[in-house]
Design a protein around this nucleic acid. Structure first.
Lengths: 138, 138
DNA sequence: CTCAATGCAAAGTATTTGCAACCGA
DNA sequence: TCGGTTGCAAATACTTTGCATTGAG
């Protein structure tokens, strides 16, 4: 359910990034900030919004997720072809990917230590280092 | 150019995986084994095949790449949403991803050392650990 | 008021699939 | 011959875009 405090928190979340708190964005932001760390697709968030009674179009979900990401509120996770996950955690951290059902989870922070980074090509700098631990059922 | 030795090598490459060496597969395999380590998309391989005069349909390129991957001759690399790269190197190694042009390169082997792997969830085992170093122009 | 944000539908991109024709063993 | 492969086109899945309308500041 969407409580007043959720809306307020969502409002702050949007304000922090200088995004205009429209009704749709606030509704989506509420869904994202409640429920802790999440990894969801545009389709999944759209479905949640519908279930929550928010009147938001799929295109707006895509647009909003992109705006949130550009503003640094979310992080894109590219693991599977043809499906973008958005992570409510924006710090650099490894992910588990379950090959069986295609779901994603955070791996424990600091559980992967990268001890040596390679020399990067001339004129480049490291933006991020993405680590995906692909798991299969034993 | 496609030489006789390329075709022979391609034939062995296919035979190693028990794949029937059809004209199309041999042509594609030749393009893949010559030229060393490569990272290409289905579209890119299709374009190369056309340029080389091989009569192969796009669907067949997709089918062949999938068959090669299932047979362990190639490795899928998922970095960008909506675009699958196939790597002719099948061992586990990190990749550079150039955000500017969307291209991929191998990072030096052993350049990334993972010193601690997290405890994986109950009943699961690690299939692979994918490391992508995203680079941007400085 | 004004311009950013939205909704809808249409377009775009990447990939898969159904099925008849084909060809390698 | 026989069943795995192929080609084509249509289908699918996901995401983006164009444009008129709406609404937040």
């Amino acid at each position: 359910m969407s409580t007043t405090s959720d809306s307020k928190e969502a409002g702050r979340w949007l304000a922090r990034a200088g995004l205009r708190p429209t009704r749709q964005r606030t509704a989506l932001a509420s869904l994202l900030v409640e429920g802790g760390n999440r990894h969801l697709t545009a389709e999944a968030l759209y479905a949640e919004a519908q279930k929550a009674g928010a009147d938001v179009s799929l295109a707006t979900v895509y647009n909003a997720l992109k705006a949130f990401t550009d503003a640094g509120l979310l992080r894109e996770v590219n693991i599977e072809a043809g499906r973008v996950y958005y992570d409510t955690r924006v710090d650099e951290h490894p992910h588990f990917y379950f090959e069986d059902d295609g779901s994603i989870a955070d791996a424990p922070v600091g559980s992967v230590k990268i001890s040596e980074l390679p020399d990067v090509p001339e004129g480049c700098e490291v933006a991020t280092v993405d680590v995906v631990i692909r798991l299969r059922r034993r």
